[in-house]
Design a protein around this nucleic acid. Structure first.
Lengths: 160, 160
DNA sequence: CACTAGTGGTTGCGTTTTGCAATCACTATA
DNA sequence: TATAGTGATTGCAAAACGCAACCACTAGTG
């Protein structure tokens, strides 16, 4: 539709570079919000319904989300594709940067950064868990709580 | 000016989430473009001069770039701050994702990903080199070509 | 001095995108 | 029939975008 250049950074920005797409993905990933209403009312930033509808169509067209088979007026469930799951490092990098450089004197101070503090292995664990939830991958045997549960226990989710 | 929520991901998106800011930073970082004209004419995507002027002001206001002391009509040199240097992981994550999921059958195939192939230590090397170039940090003794030179030798810069 | 080229922008102006409120078509439940 | 919930769509105003032309200033040349 719009290839402004062949640069891979530009290719990603053309899909994800706006004020809402990455926040929708954040809520799908960290908030486990899979339905229109959950994304609409759960958004801390207050996304409008038409914007959300537009972004969901774009993310599906871009191959980042899939929309379960649901007719008009019926509950449609959105799932991440592998491409969507692999946006996780982008979102984590943004969250870490925001935590480092955009935290006023609010309660965010002291929160752990995902990449720098938890390490890349933790990101890989999160992605594996997303494959179980969204791609029907076989659940891996856990020796403890899931990585998302570990985050929730520390009240450390970016969406929080 | 506009805190839609306290989420760190949102904080980063409010500053960097548009179609141009990250591309300007890409050109500053990987293309070493430090002046208005260089950024204007060097942009592979063809940024308009008013948009570039607006983004430079915003990036300076956000503490990501500094504008050297230059009066009107004089050559102004833009430098990265530490916050700007630390956007590198974000840009690399976007580039890696674009390379994996947005590369048509063009010549990008086979290009190395920065984070996954080169590893986090290489990103740290790039950031150190940026500190030398932009923050007047003392140059570190190199046992070979600089990390940017290594990228250029492989024609592997995201801006390429 | 005048002339030219180059610097970093600014100004109009028309098009596109965004944001908000209200509304819609459909389904499920009672 | 009535009511609530689903995923959107519509209208309209505001903001952002894109393009071309223009501006104020500096530096160099003759």
């Amino acid at each position: 539709m719009e290839p402004r250049s062949g640069c891979p950074v530009n290719a990603a920005v053309e899909v994800l570079g706006d004020r809402w797409s990455l926040l929708v993905l954040r809520d799908v990933i960290f908030g486990d919000r899979r339905y229109f209403r959950a994304l609409l009312t759960g958004s801390a930033e207050g996304i409008a319904s038409n914007i959300l509808a537009d972004r969901l169509v774009r993310l599906v067209d871009a191959g980042i989300l899939t929309r379960g088979t649901a007719a008009r007026g019926q509950r449609a469930r959105y799932s991440l594709t592998e491409a969507g799951i692999q946006t996780l490092p982008i979102i984590c990098a943004l969250g870490d940067w925001g935590l480092d450089w955009r935290s006023g004197s609010d309660e965010l101070r002291g929160r752990q950064r995902l990449i720098r503090d938890q390490g890349p292995a933790f990101i890989a664990d999160l992605m594996d868990e997303l494959r179980v939830r969204h791609l029907d991958a076989p659940p891996r045997p856990h020796d403890g709580p899931s990585p998302f549960e570990r985050l929730d226990a520390a009240r450390d989710t970016p969406a929080g």
